[in-house]
Design a protein around this nucleic acid. Structure first.
Lengths: 133, 133
DNA sequence: TTCGTTGCAAACATTTTGCAGTTTC
DNA sequence: GAAACTGCAAAATGTTTGCAACGAA
């Protein structure tokens, strides 16, 4: 429960910027690879540590696991996603509106506390369909 | 694509039974622990192999990752779930009806193929709320 | 007899952690 | 100066795999 103080960190900001600058829902490794040329003394552990940190602060969300790897999203506004089961690509699905009422309706039937929900579509992306033809 | 022939396996059936006999959405490890006393020569690798096998055959579904562990469900009928972020408990949420229209509506806007969706609620379960008081 | 299935141990891959040095405030 | 942040390497963890033996059809 106790939250420790937080200081500015150039590396955390860099991680945040990479995350905000993409809609690809990357892995920790990918973020690391993006930043490494620019910040040669960056360590993968730092990326993991900051992602977890930012997750706790609600600045980043985890949207899926694919191939055993966690996928992150710098856009914490509630929205649904599509996961391609062929290639692991993850797209935003902004056109399926996020339905907050769903949480309220679920809450009515449940004795725990419902905070939010995640809606993830699965299938095959356009690219992969094209490739397989 | 090529699917290999399949033979009967007592262990696979045992795994299936454990999975069908619980609504706790267990991990591979938990299933293994349930069966080990009854089947002393069971190996954890066999549990993993069969779970993956059954997943491919659509006999089991993966409903979530929690604490880095995959959680399985022997009930493959589409239904939503609730994950307690405190303790990792996963409940069925049958009272939030599964909405197949959602897939069709999503399909209209997407050039890939939408197969299905998963709806997962998050929050704190009743037990954990009680404990923290 | 064929080939799917298994135990076991080793291998793997991702993520976490201990520690000593660095940076922020 | 205190405490957060970091690199590095090692550790931890969940899952997969190679191989020889076993079992089903």
């Amino acid at each position: 429960m106790s939250e420790k103080a937080r200081r500015y960190s150039r590396k955390r900001e860099a991680i945040r910027e990479v995350l905000m600058g993409t809609t690809s829902h990357p892995t920790a490794e990918w973020i690391y690879a993006q930043l490494k040329p620019e910040i040669p003394d960056l360590s993968l552990a730092t990326v993991y540590r900051n992602l977890n940190d930012m997750k706790q602060f609600g600045e980043v969300q985890s949207v899926a696991f694919w191939g055993g790897k966690e996928r992150f999203d710098g856009n914490v506004k509630k929205h649904s996603h599509f996961v391609c089961e062929e290639c692991g690509r993850i797209d935003d699905f902004h056109f399926v509106p996020h339905n907050t009422e769903l949480d309220e309706s679920a809450q009515k039937h449940y004795d725990g506390r419902v905070d939010y929900h995640s809606l993830v579509f699965h299938g095959t992306c356009g690219e992969c369909i094209k490739k397989s033809q």
